[in-house]
Design a protein around this nucleic acid. Structure first.
Length: 350
DNA sequence: GCGACAG
DNA sequence: ATCTTGTCGC
């Protein structure tokens, strides 16, 4: 099994950072004819948006959504949900490994059914090239779905020396010239994306970056024409609707959370350790990523097991299963496997 | 050395 | 991601 790092690097080779599509951007003039050729729109009309929302009481339960906005009417013409139980932690810089498995099937389902609203480009709730290794969620999803994608971030990832204060300063400097966007140049000199000035009243910028098969200039143009409020409409609608879905189904979801949670979490942990003999976890150190590795063969003494236990609690259990500290202890899981080193040793021998 | 870290 | 009512301003 390749590591997440290796997967990112190899998928990145397939990334296309320039315009690669049949359609054209709609002109500012109003004569938007719905001309079609070979069943495909010649002018950009259907813009997708994806997002994932979570259940507060059990963050391992999530709802992924795909919506499609019709630019001609500015209405949502398609939406589809997917309810999932997450087994992958959120780790900064590796968001795609958590969300792509949810979102990709939604896209493929639509493609396989030859839905006429199949999006020509998808706006993703998460960054694209504006990412520590230049391959964020939007890139990852775009490459795997082979669709043009645009990254739309609400927060600036810690990457290439960029910081938010500087961005806000740049945006305000560009205000006089009427410029709504500022391109973001990292310490390396590379252009990583662009910051979009929020509508007046709000302070936080949003961040646009290349996902796949779209140039930054095109991404910016599409962000412009799809923005009515703070966020571009496809992403905003995906956000709102997936949140609504969670809210509406809350009673049922709470049942689900209580019924299978405990055993699933414990069994998965067993399997992970037993099959690979090693637990790996990516961590950041001095702006570089590395892996924290624990080999089961390292666990000879009670002390080592105790250290392993605290690592496990801090770095694996909470994040791997997206548990909060309170939830973790409420589950009583520490008694099950890792209450102390001796107990862990006993488990390892069997 | 620590801390900054998309959703 | 999630937590949250009223409130300040156009």
């Amino acid at each position: 099994m390749p590591s997440w790092l290796e997967t990112q690097h190899s998928l990145k080779k397939r990334l296309i950072d320039e315009d690669d599509f049949e359609w054209q951007l709609p002109t500012s003039s109003r004569n938007r004819s719905s001309v079609e050729r070979h069943g495909h729109q010649v002018v950009l009309r259907y813009v997708g948006g994806v997002d994932v929302s979570f259940l507060k009481e059990d963050p391992s339960i999530a709802c992924g959504i795909l919506v499609v906005l019709d630019l001609q009417t500015f209405q949502i013409v398609y939406q589809d949900y997917s309810l999932v139980r997450l087994r992958v932690p959120y780790i900064a810089g590796f968001l795609a490994f958590r969300e792509v498995p949810i979102l990709l099937p939604l896209i493929e389902k639509m493609k396989n059914s030859q839905n006429p609203y199949y999006p020509q480009v998808i706006m993703v709730d998460g960054n694209g090239m504006l990412h520590p290794r230049g391959f964020g969620l939007a890139c990852h999803l775009g490459v795997q779905a082979n669709l043009p994608t645009i990254g739309v971030g609400k927060n600036l990832h810690y990457v290439d020396g960029l910081n938010e204060e500087e961005v806000i300063r740049l945006l305000q400097a560009g205000r006089r010239s009427g410029e709504d966007f500022v391109k973001l140049v990292g310490d390396s000199g590379r252009i990583l994306g662009a910051a979009m000035r929020p509508p007046r009243g709000s302070q936080d910028p949003i961040y646009i970056s290349i996902g796949h098969r779209v140039s930054l200039d095109t991404a910016i143009k599409i962000a412009k024409i799809t923005r009515q409020y703070h966020l571009p409409e496809p992403v905003r609608q995906a956000d709102l609707r997936s949140r609504d879905y969670i809210r509406e189904h809350k009673p049922m979801l709470l049942n689900l959370a209580n019924s299978t949670w405990k055993t699933t979490a414990a069994i998965d942990l067993f399997n992970d350790m037993a099959s690979s003999g090693v637990l790996e976890f990516p961590i950041y150190k001095d702006g570089l990523e590395s892996f924290c590795r624990w080999h089961l063969t390292d666990l000879h003494t009670t002390d080592q097991c105790d250290m392993f236990r605290s690592f496990l609690i801090k770095k694996v259990y909470y994040e791997k299963f997206a548990l909060t500290e309170q939830q973790y202890f409420a589950m009583g899981l520490e008694d099950f496997l890792i209450s102390n080193g001796k107990r862990l040793l006993r488990f390892l021998r069997n």
